[in-house]
Design a protein around this nucleic acid. Structure first.
Lengths: 208, 208
DNA sequence: GCAGGAAATTATCTTTTGTTAACCGTGCCT
DNA sequence: AGGCACGGTTAACAAAAGATAATTTCCTGC
């Protein structure tokens, strides 16, 4: 069965990466990671499919193998506000449910067809109870997420919207080209109209 | 010696709180926490004293027993930008050094006389190697910090500066009154002038 | 390939913020 | 007490962003 074979190859790419990470972080040999990866499962999301809804209480942690995801929230006035985007080789988690055991404020949705390697956080905790040697992996993704949040926070307090956009272009040009501008705009804390003006200003400056 | 006695009482307040936390999180009995708290030390900072400088590589983690601290960064134009404030019963950490082993971008400074319960993060890691039962404490402060960062991020993408200020007043009125407005302003991503205008507008609205 | 819809741009107007500088009030230091 | 430094307010102007709506471009499903 060719499809199944491809899926298995796919899975192993992602698992191999995480096994390597676990080895680097904690010296755990790939052969010793079966108890962990036995509890993971691959999830396919279609473009535009919702992964986690506002109000969901499932505690999900996932590693993005392929595709781009968007975390957003519905504002009081009904508009959406994008908090962040996540793509290949990054983690995504239902933060509220995991950290505060609260229903999720945020909605997590695939912008493209997405492949995830998912684990239920409660299951992960159980595995970690009996296999504390995997613990560094949990610290790793928590620290990664914290680091990314702090970087975004820094850009909000130190940079103007235009500078934030320039920054994003410089650091994640590929991403900006994959994602509709309106999501980029709201992630930068501005309206799509304003982002369009910023782009125009940048072009004009480049010409003048 | 009265002073010494007072210091010891003080320390024990903070340690007791953390012992209780560790019991709640992991069922570790206070009597079994000696290996951890033996590695902590109390630090006194005068008002305006710097705790961590930009460029520092020490990996410090501290629990704030008393006082308010400010984390800020020097912008390219020389101005300061405040990222966040932390106060009693919160953790503060040299994020860059701990997460990425990089020299700190941020400066951490006491706004008031501050008392910290400090541990060297490398020492903590060593303790955790031999005492994995304390591990939930590490997850706790990482998650707390992440949660706070995400809340701030949310307020940047969903709220206007005025709304962010109202929010802050509603949630941390005590803090706003303890800290000079200019730091509040830069934490909100605006200038002190603009915050002053927001305050005026709010007053005017209240009167009209 | 075409039609319909969504995204992006442009235009207009209002509101807010940034910038710079002057001005006030408070507290601190000698 | 006097003066000085600092934080906060106010003023005036320029620049940018928000809101709304019209228009164009793009893309996607049929």
């Amino acid at each position: 069965n060719l499809t199944l074979a491809l899926v298995e190859i796919n899975m192993s790419v992602s698992i191999t990466t995480l096994q390597q990470l676990l080895f680097e972080l904690a010296g755990v040999l790939p052969a010793d990671t079966a108890p962990l990866f036995a509890m993971t499962r691959q999830v396919q999301l279609a473009a535009n499919e919702t992964y986690i809804r506002a109000g969901d209480t499932e505690r999900r942690l996932a590693y993005i193998e392929q595709g781009v995801m968007r975390a957003y929230i519905i504002k009081d006035n009904g508009d959406e506000a994008t908090l962040f985007l996540r793509w290949e080789k990054q983690f995504i988690a239902s933060h509220d449910a995991i950290i505060q055991r609260k229903p999720s404020r945020f909605i997590y949705r695939a912008l493209e067809p997405v492949t995830l390697l998912e684990i239920d956080y409660d299951v992960l905790e159980a595995v970690l109870k009996t296999h504390p040697e995997y613990e560094p992996l949990r610290n790793f993704f928590l620290m990664r997420m914290l680091s990314e949040s702090l970087n975004m926070l820094e850009s909000f307090v130190t940079l103007s919207p235009e500078e934030r956009y320039r920054n994003l272009l410089a650091e994640r040009f590929d991403l900006v080209n994959r994602v509709p501008d309106k999501y980029i705009a709201s992630m930068l804390g501005i309206t799509p109209v304003s982002l369009s003006r910023i782009r125009k200003r940048m072009l004009d400056k480049g010409k003048g």
